[in-house]
């Protein structure tokens, strides 16, 4: 081939230009196919929603421990006749400091719903909690469901319920670490709790928050946990200790 390409000349020689046009067309076709294929083969994601930008007003009773929950009258489990909404703050922070003064009291707050399956969370707008009345709602009874050995993954509840999707797995690990470290309630996500997927709030044996430094290194990776499960309303708690959490091979 006698043609020689010099980039700063106005035009490429015709033979080279023809060749490059063909190469460019092939590359564009390849880019299009790659985009579609890569989009197609992505793992399907669970239906979880963060109603970003859609603020709502909620009224209910604050349950501060082990993790902040707003108990809202109305829908929910048949036994309690109420919904239990986990509360978190904005960003990667827990809402403990916001709710502590309102423990057991009926409040109104503004926030954004985050939900997955039958679990709902509210990202509370900072400073939006106001006291409605001191009267408290009686706690629904807790039900011991027994001792279990479950395989699954410890994740932060906020991302897992919908702020990020996927909110689990290795890619999300650093975020889960940051969220749990910042006070977002840790949950144990398992696909086999009595044969069904379940999301269980992780606590210590006394149903207090499990010290995060004891399990932070095991976040977002397959682990096995031995513990007892307690159900309060529609909320499941997995009571365990650091020594009962072990990585799966």
């Amino acid at each position: 081939m006698n043609e020689f390409y010099v980039g700063y000349l106005p035009k490429a020689p015709s033979g080279i230009a023809r060749c490059i046009r063909a190469v460019v067309v092939l590359l564009l076709i390849f880019a299009a196919i790659a985009a579609i294929v890569f989009a197609k083969v992505q793992r399907t994601l669970a239906p979880s929603v963060f109603e970003y930008g859609k603020l709502g007003t909620f009224e209910g009773t604050i349950e501060a421990s082990p993790y902040p929950i707003l108990i809202v009258a109305g829908a929910g489990s048949a036994e309690s006749g109420a919904s239990r909404y986990l509360l978190v703050a904005e960003g990667k922070h827990g809402a403990d400091s916001q709710v502590v003064a309102f423990a057991g009291k009926t409040v109104q707050l503004r926030g954004t719903r985050i939900y997955r399956d039958n679990q709902t969370m509210i990202e509370v707008v900072s400073g939006s909690i106001s006291l409605k009345r001191d009267s408290t709602r009686s706690q629904p009874p807790s039900q011991e469901l027994g001792i279990f050995e479950l395989a699954g993954e410890i994740v932060d509840s906020k991302c897992y319920l919908g702020v990020m999707n996927p909110g689990s797995g290795k890619v999300h690990r650093d975020c889960a670490v940051r969220c749990i470290s910042g006070g977002i309630p840790p949950v144990f996500a398992t696909n086999d709790f009595n044969g069904s997927p379940a999301i269980l709030l992780l606590t210590d044996l006394h149903q207090k928050p499990l010290p995060k430094e004891t399990f932070l290194k095991l976040v977002a990776q397959p682990v096995r946990i031995h513990g007892s499960v307690v159900k309060t309303g529609e909320t499941l708690y997995l009571k365990t200790g650091p020594s009962a959490i072990s990585p799966l091979p």
Binding site: H93, R178, S181
Partner: peptide, 8 residues
Amino acid sequence: QFHSLGDK
């Protein structure tokens, strides 16, 4: 997404 708005 993964690192901002946290405690570090």
